[in-house]
Measured scan of single mutants.
Amino acid sequence: QEELVKAFKALLKEEKFSSQGEIVAALQEQGFDNINQSKVSRMLTKFGAVRTRNAKMEMVYCLPAELGV
């Protein structure tokens, strides 16, 4: 569980995922086979993730800066 949270936060820091499906796929690539869209959705809510525009003006998920991840 701890490893999943770390990987999840690291992915969001990249600010390149525009959908929950993309986050699920990226986590599965890292070996988290039991991850699915509903789990990702709950984690996004739990950590207060928001959708914002990145440098390329794409809408992407990211974590609020005050979490200091």
Results as ranks from 00 to 15, higher is better:
39 K>M: 15
51 R>C: 15
45 T>G: 07
40 V>Y: 00
57 M>N: 15
17 F>G: 02
68 G>R: 03
24 V>P: 00
30 Q>H: 07
15 E>T: 05
29 E>H: 10
64 P>R: 06
43 M>G: 01
9 K>A: 08
48 G>Y: 03
15 E>I: 04
68 G>D: 15
12 L>W: 03
3 E>R: 11
9 K>I: 15
40 V>W: 01
5 V>T: 10
20 Q>D: 08
36 N>A: 05
4 L>W: 05
44 L>T: 01
65 A>V: 11
37 Q>G: 10
47 F>I: 12
65 A>C: 03
36 N>E: 07
19 S>F: 10
53 R>E: 11
53 R>T: 14
32 F>G: 00
23 I>E: 01
51 R>T: 07
31 G>L: 03
8 F>D: 00
27 L>E: 00
49 A>D: 02
69 V>S: 15
62 C>Y: 06
11 L>D: 00
38 S>N: 13
32 F>C: 02
37 Q>R: 15
47 F>S: 04
23 I>A: 01
8 F>M: 08
38 S>M: 11
39 K>D: 15
17 F>A: 04
55 A>I: 08
51 R>W: 12
4 L>T: 03
56 K>R: 07
26 A>Q: 09
16 K>Q: 07
6 K>R: 13
55 A>F: 05
5 V>Y: 15
60 V>L: 02
50 V>D: 04
4 L>V: 07
63 L>P: 02
40 V>T: 02
62 C>P: 01
38 S>R: 15
6 K>A: 14
2 E>D: 13
56 K>M: 10
29 E>K: 11
42 R>P: 01
67 L>I: 14
4 L>Q: 03
8 F>Q: 00
20 Q>L: 11
55 A>K: 13
5 V>M: 13
9 K>F: 14
21 G>V: 13
27 L>H: 00
34 N>G: 14
31 G>I: 01
52 T>I: 12
11 L>Q: 01
38 S>F: 13
60 V>G: 02
11 L>A: 06
9 K>Y: 13
1 Q>C: 15
65 A>I: 10
9 K>R: 09
51 R>I: 15
37 Q>E: 14
68 G>M: 06
16 K>F: 05
54 N>I: 02
64 P>Q: 05
41 S>L: 08
27 L>I: 02
40 V>S: 01
8 F>H: 00
14 E>H: 06
65 A>Y: 13
63 L>W: 06
59 M>N: 05
28 Q>E: 08
43 M>H: 01
61 Y>G: 02
5 V>I: 14
31 G>K: 03
40 V>A: 03
9 K>G: 05
23 I>M: 07
55 A>C: 04
48 G>L: 04
65 A>T: 12
